[in-house]
Nucleic acid binder design. Structure first.
Length: 722
DNA sequence: ATGGACAATGTTTTT
DNA sequence: CATTGTCCAT
């Protein structure tokens, strides 16, 4: 089956055929990593005779999984049946449903999305009589999520401060509430699977024996839970094949730890390490810019990326007056490329740090009457009407799901207000039933023993709704998901509720129609399959590749994609790097990687854009260009004069000088009284600062280690905002 | 119970 | 500024 090695370079070949023992493939951007992964799967089946049943391949997005499946099938035909191929989360769902009898939930559990999770945190806070202002649900949830990713249960939650103590209690309550709802959050899927494999050696054995080959994509994005899972699953045969690139690790905030790459080499000391450094995507100029940017990150394994593609066009650096002008520039530039026949609209992508930045771009496209497509942002599944319909389905599937019950119990309004809901919950608590179960019982009307416990109107409203849910439940096995949706929409009068005479209502109803179309695909599967699928889709999964129009997307969403023409906008301090990363060197390093990921998406043309003024809180304020721009050698750039090193704001005079890649501006960055943070020594106060031998020498009094003298260009100091 | 008006509050990235 | 929550009048 030598065709599986056709067209591969030596390193790729080596990787594809490395099927024994642990293998770590460090794959630079555009180095054919997906190719290596798919061929390696095919090679194991075709050449080594492995049964697909014995192969596990995990990815982070459904799209990546789907693509991989299609490409393997294209290589070796249809004999991929039995292959386990999916995202970490979907693979875990499958395992957990099968093994639920060993775990504290049953196999019909539902998956709570981000919204539900916040609701549960709020509920927990209220149950514990804690102030939502003081303990913001999002921040508490982040702490819980972090703990789960580290495989820490409530009792293991590390306590250093009083706040930690509170978080631990909320975590405990949150945990209970989820189990009472027979629901798992995203993190639980990983946590419980890891727990299962650790606690039940016979189960672990069963899977580890089955999976003779374990392959992982985007390994640098794994968190502790995922890493542990992989180790368990590969523990018997030890044929684990991990592909990743620490320089493209951009999900630290989600628990991802690129140090797992190093950990892998330690845990599997016999691992073969294969480097893929030849880039097949970008021109050399683009690649050089990318390397110049990423080389500034400390403590990384240097890779020397090269391409056979030639230098290519220079990178365009554009300075716009403000964010509106920035958007206009992008639209103009695309229009002009298309007009000159240099690109198709669909070749172009515009990338930005935050979703909020998409708005002005969208407006600019609309003003120019040009179509575009947007990845993510107001996600389809995040829309209110979609969440409503899904909540109905989940309630029908699982009446224990309190989050869904509360979401739809009065939508459309059916005279069940806060008072009545509180009464329902109270009585449920007294009887030991879940609110949803109580509601179902009330659905029997006056036959229900609980009917008399409510004040007249309330009892009737509840009974009516309970009756509806009873009916839907009775039908749920006969009807397809689509038929059930239609039945619910009809029974509750959802179209009338949306008021399709208004533009907004009509658009919402359109979205419901879109959901119906998606449900139509599930005519031969059950409701739960549909619910699983929509719980685990990602933004990238909804990207429509057919339309020949420009794509707007965040830098995060751009990972794994490539485009002939790439615009990266908002290249300013506080945007990229984002201001939330300023006081943490690790976070700052990740901002740089994010920029690196963006640059390396480009095949032929790269446009880097920054605006001198940007609207922040509704007010437009002056900006400084991103520090990352300073790291790109000027000879790779063209466009208007390269304005460099503005930190300190005297750039206009310096600009006159010949563009020299010399030292930064002679202006103190640190002044006495400033608070700064050093990666090693922690926080300290600047005592004084002066210029010496072309560098800034700063004396700092650190809280932990006392007085230190540092060179500003060498010490990785960060400002601490007071 | 409902809906509207106002205030506060917060803005990264997402399986 | 744009969303979310809270208060108040119906």
């Amino acid at each position: 089956m030598s065709f599986l090695l056709d067209g591969l370079n030596e390193q790729q070949r080596k990787a594809v055929t490395a099927c024994q023992g642990p293998v770590l493939v460090l794959a630079g951007p555009g180095s054919g990593k997906t190719r290596v992964l798919t061929r390696s799967i095919a090679y194991r089946i075709e050449t080594l005779g492995a049964r697909p049943y014995h192969i596990l391949a995990v990815t982070f997005t459904n799209k990546a999984a789907r693509e991989m499946g299609e490409r393997v099938e294209k290589l070796i035909g249809a004999n991929t049946h039995g292959l386990t191929l999916g995202t970490f989360h979907s693979v875990c769902v499958r395992i957990l449903r099968r093994q639920a009898e060993r775990l504290p939930f049953d196999s019909h559990f539902v998956i709570f999305d981000a919204d539900d999770q916040i609701r549960v945190v709020k509920r927990a806070l209220r149950d514990l009589d804690l102030d939502e202002k003081q303990y913001r649900p999002h921040s508490i949830h982040a702490a819980i999520s972090r703990a789960k990713n580290e495989l820490l249960l409530p009792e293991d939650f590390p306590i250093k401060t009083y706040r930690d103590e509170v978080v631990r209690r909320v975590y405990e309550q949150y945990h209970k509430l989820l189990l009472a709802s027979n629901a798992l959050d995203f993190d639980d899927l990983l946590l419980w699977t890891a727990f299962l494999l650790a606690e039940y050696p016979e189960v672990c054995q069963q899977y580890a024996r089955r999976y003779q080959h374990v392959l992982v994509d985007e390994f640098q994005d794994t968190n502790m839970a995922q890493y542990t899972l992989l180790k368990h699953l590969a523990s018997f045969h030890r044929n684990i094949f991990a592909v990743g690139d620490a320089d493209q690790s951009i999900y630290r905030w989600r628990g991802a730890d690129y140090r797992n790459v190093r950990r892998f080499e330690q845990d599997f000391s016999d691992a073969q390490v294969i480097l893929l450094e030849q880039n097949y995507r970008s021109t050399q100029n683009i690649l050089d810019a990318a390397m110049a940017v990423i080389d500034q990150n400390p403590q990384r394994r240097r890779k020397k990326l090269f391409t056979g593609r030639g230098a290519g066009k220079k990178i365009t650096l554009h300075e716009a007056h403000d964010d509106r002008a920035e958007a206009a520039f992008v639209v103009d530039a695309i229009a002009s490329l298309v007009a000159r026949g240099q690109a198709q609209p669909g070749d172009c992508a515009i990338m930005y740090r935050t979703n909020a930045q998409s708005r002005l771009l969208e407006e600019a496209f609309m003003r120019a009457n040009l179509p575009y497509k947007l990845v993510g942002a107001q996600r389809f599944y995040g829309r209110r009407e979609i969440k409503d319909v899904i909540a109905y389905l989940r309630l029908v599937h699982n009446p224990l799901d309190e989050a869904s019950l509360l979401r739809v119990i009065n939508v459309p309004p059916r005279r069940i207000g806060a008072k009545t809901v509180a009464a329902l919950r109270t009585l449920a608590g007294q009887t030991g039933l879940a609110p949803g179960e109580l509601l179902l019982d009330l659905g029997k009307g006056e036959d229900s023993e609980y009917f008399g416990k409510f004040r007249g109107r309330a009892a009737l409203s509840l009974a009516n709704f309970g009756h509806l849910v009873r009916n839907w439940r009775a039908l749920r096995d006969e009807l397809t998901p689509l038929q059930l949706i239609d039945r619910i929409l009809h029974d509750v009068g959802y179209e009338a509720y949306l008021d399709t005479s208004t533009e907004e209502g009509l658009s919402r109803w359109d979205n419901v129609q879109e959901l119906r179309r998606l449900a139509a695909d599930y005519h031969d599967r059950d409701l739960l399959a549909f619910l699983d699928e929509i719980a685990l889709v990602s933004d990238q999964d909804t990207l429509d590749e057919a339309a020949n129009v420009p794509t707007l997307l965040t830098l995060h969403a751009a990972k794994g994609l490539e485009f002939p023409v790439v615009f990266i906008v908002g290249l300013e301090e506080r945007t990229l790097p984002h201001f939330r990363s300023f006081d943490d060197p690790e976070a700052m390093a990740e901002e740089r990687r994010l920029f690196y990921v963006g640059i390396t998406r480009a095949k032929d043309r790269l446009f880097l854009v920054h605006a001198l003024n940007r609207a922040a809180y509704g007010y437009t304020e002056p900006t400084e260009p991103s520090r990352f721009l300073e790291d790109i050698p000027t000879h790779l750039l063209n466009g208007q004069g390269v304005v460099r090193s503005f930190r300190g704001r005297e750039g206009t005079t310096r600009q006159q000088n010949a563009p020299s890649p010399g030292p930064p501006p002679q202006r103190a960055r640190y002044q006495a009284g400033m608070k700064v943070r050093h990666p090693l020594w922690g926080e300290g106060m600047v005592l004084n600062s002066r210029w010496q031998d072309g560098d800034e020498t700063v004396d700092i009094f650190f809280e932990k280690v006392g007085l230190k003298r540092v060179a500003a260009s060498l010490a990785k100091l960060d400002y601490v905002n007071e």
